[in-house]
């Protein structure tokens, strides 16, 4: 028996507690304005599905974005992703 931990939980819960350096992140759903602010600050970002299946990159569940509309579209798509019989819980931007 085991309990898997995804990156989003790590970013939100574990990294701050143990002072592990991580990038800023934004959890979906978020205001379009907030997404815009983040992109403006970070210059470019990656949208990822919050899913407990490995091999996200190869499965197309990680997407490089720079425009706000692309980012929002990607976050929406990824929050409903399915991979290796598992479902995404949400998506996020880093």
């Amino acid at each position: 028996m085991s309990h898997e931990v995804g990156e989003l939980t790590f970013l939100r819960e574990l990294a701050p507690r143990y002072a592990v350096p991580v990038p800023e992140f934004l959890e979906w759903p978020a205001e379009r304005k907030t997404v815009q602010d983040c992109l403006a600050r970070w210059k470019s970002a990656v949208a990822k599905a919050d899913i407990l299946a490995g091999g996200r990159g190869k499965a197309g569940l990680v997407e490089q974005v720079s425009a706000v509309s692309d980012a929002v579209r990607a976050l929406k798509r990824l929050s409903a992703a399915e991979h290796k019989g598992r479902l995404a819980r949400t998506s996020y931007l880093v």
Partner: peptide
């Protein structure tokens, strides 16, 4: 020169009460 963790996965041991 600052490292930033850019992807992460972990598994808690269900048999370990710590988590």
């Amino acid at each position: 020169h600052r490292p930033v963790a850019c992807d992460f996965k972990a598994v808690f041991d269900e048999a370990n009460f710590k988590h």
